[in-house]
Design a protein around this nucleic acid. Sequence first.
DNA 1: AATTCGGGGTG
DNA 2: CACCCAGAATT
Length: 377
Amino acid sequence: MTKFIDMATTLSVRSFRTALLRWFAKHQRDLPWRHTHDPYAIWISETMLQQTQVATVRSYYERFLERFPNVWQLADAEEAEVLRLWAGLGYYRRARQLHAAAKQICDQHEGQFPPELEKLQHLPGIGRYTAGAILSFAYDAPAPIVEANTSRVYCRLLALTAPPSQAATQKELWTFAESLQPTSGGSGALNQALMELGSLVCTPQAPQCADCPVKKYCRAYAAGLENEVPCRPAKQKFTALHHALIIVQKQKDFLVRRNPAGGWWEGLWDFPRVDITETMTALVSKKTPTERILVETCQAAFQAKFDLHLDSISHVHTLRHGVTRYRIRLDCFRATSLRLKKLPNEFQWLPLPAIELLGLTSTGRKMLRWISAQDFS
DNA sequence: AATTCGGGGTG
DNA sequence: CACCCAGAATT
């Protein structure tokens, strides 16, 4: 704290805050969660915003609050309904934890958010950042925050060249965030302003230092290091996966499956799919697989995994999508008939309008749109 | 301390 | 395609 003040010419943290807040008052975006001090609404927005961009969250946030206006209604909901409203946002664990936390808040805290950092952090899905956000935005309590935007802003203000992910750097960032907090109100606005600065001016690439209201406090700017700081993590390496998906139709119904516990997309619906990575890499190293090989592999994989025997399969579509460190090639097949002894109960036959209402994975929704455009009938 | 959770928007 | 995102929990 003193380090920063010493560095920042003769001006104090107070002047820093004033300059930042003046800029914020003029340039802040109009975001739906800035119109409320309801800790519940703020909690929903912060959870949705975890690792998810503002533009993506907007519509989800409004729809979710409309469906679950308060913590009691969320606690009383079916998990499937919560997942349905979350479908497409990703990180579905967040939705399940949100639901679990809502139940805890109703059962153990009489529906009130405990206005203490520690108790908030005991709730599933609420870590240090989210707890600080709820406290400062809802109650204007002096709680520091560090997330993607503020982390970058702090790193540049302090000219921290070490990787921000390192534990020691993290500690510095939280200490610095703490040192910026006002003691007599205004934490909420300050934290919002810090994030907004990171989002609009102190951007990851090509930060607009000329327009920065606090450039005179910035060590990176003074040293011409604004493009070097914060240092970037090493490039991610991806693992290639190959999945096969089947579209099976019985009159107006299509076969869909709910992902079981313990795997990816738990609780979300999709068209039946299997992993064929191993077989495919063994069969065709690098070359584009022929349709015949794809079809046979798909057939064998569904037989092995679900004891499903598919007839007359044809390859109809290919999707590519990313899941964290994986890059998945998804080959889609249409099977006109299948034989099986007994359909496991995670499967269902449903018409397209009913499938539309399920909590589908993103690929599930893509496939649904694709099928609707196909004139299968 | 590193890994694992999705998915979409943007250049 | 590469990069990035209002992180948290688990190992």
